[in-house]
Structures are given as C-alpha cells and as structure tokens.
Amino acid sequence: MAEQPEGLVSIKDFVRWGASRFNAHGLFFGHGTDNAVDEAAQLVLSALHLESDLPAAFHDCRLTSAEREAIAALIERRLVERVPAAYLTGSAWFAGLEFAVNAHVLVPRSPIAEVIENAFHPWIAPDGIERVLDLCTGSGCIGIAAAVYLPEADVDLVDVSPDALSVARENVERHGVAARVRVLESDLFDGLRGNRYDVIVSNPPYVSRAELESLPLEYHREPRLGLLGGEDGLDLVFRILAEADRFLTDDGILIVEVGSSAETLEQRLPEVPFTWLEFERGGDGVFILTREQLVASQPLVEAILGS
C-alpha cells in the first residue's frame, strides 16, 4: 500500500504533491502530457473517476480516505514503474476522442491528428474520400478518428500484432463505427491485395536502434514492435514507399509519420519530392506523397531495397 501523505485533503493538494514528486524523481513526460502538473492531474482525476475538464470549483473538494489511498497508489506506480500515465489510467486522447490503451499499443500522440480533424483538407477533397487505410494501426486511433471526421468513408485498420488489434476492436466498438471500419491482421500490404484507398495513412515503427536505446525509460514500457524500425528506423517506411502506389486510387495520397528519421529519409532519397507538413500544435516528421509521385519514385526506392 502506498504511503498517504499527511495534510493533503483536496484534489488540488494531490495534483501539487504528485507533480512535485514527479519532478523530484526526474520523470519524463511525452505520452499525452508534457509537464508534471498535467501528468499528476491526469492520474488524480482518473483515480476519482472524474473528467479532465472538471470545473475549477471542485478542485478544493475534500477527498475521502479511500480516494486519497487510490490516488497515492497511482502516483507511486508512476514513480516506481516509470510507465506512461495512459497505461495506468487505461485511456488516452487523440483528435478530441478518447481511446482505450494498454501496453500492447503505443500511447496515441501523433501530430497526424490535426490532419484528420481537417478531414485531410487541403491535400485531398474530403467529399471525395471513400476509403481510408490506417497502416500499423496500433490502438486504431488514427483510422477510427478518420471514420469519425469522415462519416461517409469506410476505413480499414491494419496491424501485424493480434494483441494490438484486440485493442483496436475495443475502440471500434467504443466509438460506434463498426459498420464502416474493418480490423485486419496483415504484415503491411500483404493481406490487402485487390484493395484501393483514397488515403493511406501510417504511423509505422520508425525509431532507429541507437535512438531507441537512448530514449527515457517510459518509452521502453511501450511495445518494441511499435517503435523499432530497424538500424536506421526506415525498414518499414521503405516497404511502404515501394508498395503503396498499388493500393491507392489514381488521385490518392500517402501520409506517413517518420518523426526523427525524417532527415535520414531525405538523405537517402534526396530526389523524392516529399511534402513535409507543419502543425499548429507542434510536431513534425510527417510527409505526404501523391500516387503519381510514388510511381515516379519507384526506381529510387527499389534501388535502396535492392542494395
């Protein structure tokens, strides 16, 4: 049982106490929050079964002994286990939507959320999007959000991990989109022959081996399968570039997050006309290519794969 601190009685007290302990222990924040106060607030409110937008008037409410004990236990787990708060609460937010998460999937945090919230405009006309593919779907957050923001589109969620797909199915049911969203097990495009999509969007594993080993402990609580992209982080990215054109409609687009591997990708494919997106809420390393650009780039990609 976690030790309960004396003198703390309110929600506000426990948020302050938790944040102080997190900072004192040098925790890393990058899985839904970027500071100790927000991280502590997430855990405190979750322990109390309260929403994140709790009115400020309730912040001074006195807590029961059982509530204080539940909060202290969550704070202690965050300190000792160094797991992202989302795994402790079982949920994370993406594109304004709440998703179930566990240690079988990455914690949703992609800047692609902004693209989805804009229904992929101006890169493709939203009313012309009939089918979307979310490749390396994990929790399903990208594809399910696309289904919510594009209520007329059909979406396929694809991943190689059965455990991840179980989480994705739970989120499909949570958001009531089962009539338009399929959950498919496949190693990238291997199980998708004959399908064509207007938008293929992917947040694949793209972390290099050296970078992964240097990341804070919180990242090592996430599934390695969802992070490691080979020696230089680009193994799956090159496979996607090599095959995506065959699964896109004539006017279709490919959107891929490569994060910190963006510079390496440009160095290895300097002649490919990547369009790198800018985001109002921060984030980078996301490119767009049209099908036409992908077709023209095939000799360059194949040369790398064959080397």
Score class of each variant (00 low, 15 high):
R131A: 04
Y219H: 13
A57R: 14
A125I: 03
N35V: 05
D251T: 13
V115D: 05
D34I: 08
T89G: 12
A92K: 01
G194T: 02
K12W: 07
S307C: 00
L225D: 11
L27K: 03
V258S: 08
H25F: 12
A210N: 08
T33I: 10
P162G: 02
S297T: 10
I144R: 01
R291N: 01
I129H: 01
R221P: 09
G306I: 05
L157K: 09
T64M: 10
L150H: 06
F58G: 00
V80M: 06
A164I: 00
N102Q: 02
T290G: 14
I142C: 12
T264P: 02
E218H: 03
V9S: 09
G140K: 03
L43I: 05
G7W: 12
S161Q: 11
L212I: 01
H104M: 05
S20Y: 04
A47S: 15
I288S: 01
F274T: 06
P223W: 04
I304Q: 11
E39A: 14
H175G: 05
E292I: 10
H25I: 02
E152C: 04
E6Q: 15
T264K: 12
A145D: 07
P111A: 08
E271L: 12
G176C: 06
Q42P: 00
L48K: 05
D156N: 01
L241A: 09
F279I: 00
E292K: 14
A56K: 14
T249E: 15
G90F: 08
G252P: 09
R221F: 12
A147F: 00
P108D: 14
S91Y: 14
A113N: 12
E222Q: 15
S214Q: 13
C61M: 14
E211H: 09
L192T: 12
N35R: 12
E222L: 06
G306Q: 13
V132R: 08
E76W: 02
R193F: 11
G176S: 08
H59N: 03
A242R: 15
G143S: 11
A2M: 07
A66C: 00
R246Y: 03
R68E: 05
V15G: 01
A125Q: 04
F22H: 11
E6C: 10
F29G: 06
A119P: 05
G143K: 07
A125W: 00
F94W: 04
F189S: 11
F22R: 06
S297R: 14
E6T: 13
T275I: 01
A113S: 15
E69D: 10
A41W: 12
E271T: 13
V181K: 10
I124N: 01
S297H: 08
D38C: 09
F22C: 07
S166F: 11
L294W: 09
P126T: 07
R281C: 00
G285N: 07
G30D: 13
E117Y: 04
D187S: 15
T89V: 13
P205H: 05
G282P: 06
G7E: 03
I255T: 07
R281W: 04
T33V: 14
D60A: 12
S208Y: 08
R77F: 00
I116L: 13
D34A: 11
D235S: 09
R109G: 09
E302F: 10
L305M: 12
V107T: 14
I11E: 03
P122Q: 08
R78D: 07
F238K: 12
E152W: 06
E292P: 04
P108H: 08
A36D: 07
S261Y: 11
E6N: 12
R174G: 03
G229D: 02
F247S: 02
R82S: 10
V181A: 06
